[in-house]
Amino acid sequence: MQEQQQTYRKKAKYTDEVVIDIRDLYIAFGSNKVLNGFTLQLRRDECKVVLGRSGSGKSVLIKCIIGLLKPKSGSITVCSQDILAMNHDELDKMRIQIGFLFQSNALYDSMTVRENLEFPMRRHGLELDEKDAEGRVLEALANVGLEHTVDMMPAELSGGMKKRVALARTLILKPDIILYDEPTTGLDPVTSREISDLMNELHEKYKTSSIVISHDMNCVRTVADRIAVLHEGKCFAEGSYEELQQRTEKEIKQFFV
């Protein structure tokens, strides 16, 4: 058991440079205060997991970071730039640096895997000739071990393959930061472990900083450098997996049973 835990544990190698700085974030839907003064920092090369119960506002948090939702108050700076003060064009430019892996994969049903991967490149106006674009698509698919699916439709792929293709699409723009929204939800334990390992591999290869939203503790243990516990709209506690495992508060303990 001790040996198994050793293989899971990652050595934190992140720097002190803050790439995402979230302060006093407040967002409510009607009378439901989802985030109520949430504060979090992500450092370069760090993988931070935000842990919380379903409906606690984890997905809302990363949708605020990418600019899909606008908080009522608070600040979000990404690489020292204020996301909330950006206009649409500035936000689009910033999004080249931030990859987003959706919980439901969000692969476009009407497009092939190739077209799905080319879509962000074309839309962000990356001036690549056909050969370079093809090279990038194949490189991204090779990273996730799915080169053979390039001309397949998303409907022909299994759940795990869809997740890998979605991950390849997230990586196609070579972002500095990746936001993962429940990357292992709905997958069987073996595939979940494969995805978690793949996240680690890609983190090592591309030196990305990431925020992972999850309540799958195997995935959390595998990928997290540090963990923030989201409770009642606030960052209730933060620490490494081992540190939080020792804590006795009910709000933390419930995840480590």
Binding site: L68, D92, F102, S104, Y108, D109, F119
Partner: peptide, 18 residues
């Protein structure tokens, strides 16, 4: 509707598309 519930519309927005 299915693009909305499977977050494809959000994915378009983060891919630099209105």
């Amino acid at each position: 509707g299915s693009m909305k519930v499977t977050e494809q519309i959000d994915a378009m927005e983060v891919s630099g598309t209105n």
